[in-house]
Amino acid sequence: MRPKVRFFTPTAALLRRITIYGTLLFFLIIIQTSLPFIPIFRRAVPGLVLVSAAAIGFFDSEYAGAIAGMVAGTALDALGGVSLSLAPLAGFAAGYFCGTVAGKKLPRELPAFSVCLAAVSALNLFVTLVCAYAANSELRPVRLIVYTLLPGFFYTLLFGIPVALLTFLCARLAGKTKRERQATAER
């Protein structure tokens, strides 16, 4: 007897999630790549997309977070990247690991996300450091830390709060029910 072939058919709920998260990430990418037009963001830009990917992972699931982070990271580098393209990898890591800790080590609640936000800010700092040295190996570490890395870290912490809140609302809008979240946590 031949095995029954099962094709992937996206459900309406899945399409709704893709649309909501896709729209959210797209606009965050546009905002993040346009921020350097404002003088205070010339040297350091908050990692809004990374925070959003982590929040999707945290409030939805690690799978959604990983895929959203990877796709958004690729798009971010496509629009704003210069040399080393680390954003897909960073987005994937942020989305996946924040999703993994949620429900197990941390409750899937907004205040608990602050721990992930700090971790994502640190990840953004690391990615910026690697990309900066890949672009120019003659950079002076002190100046890079003072003018780019530390402001970038604090901007991500600060501007990550509204982004996390927005992603939390989007996750709710995407229709992730409590039962589904419990099922994900049990898995």
Binding site: P36, F37, R43, V45, G80, C131, A132, A135, N136, G152
Partner: peptide
């Protein structure tokens, strides 16, 4: 229409 997103290198789009 764009400036580099990382801030460590100024590149215009």
């Amino acid at each position: 229409i764009g400036r580099e997103a990382g801030g460590y290198m100024a590149v215009y789009t």
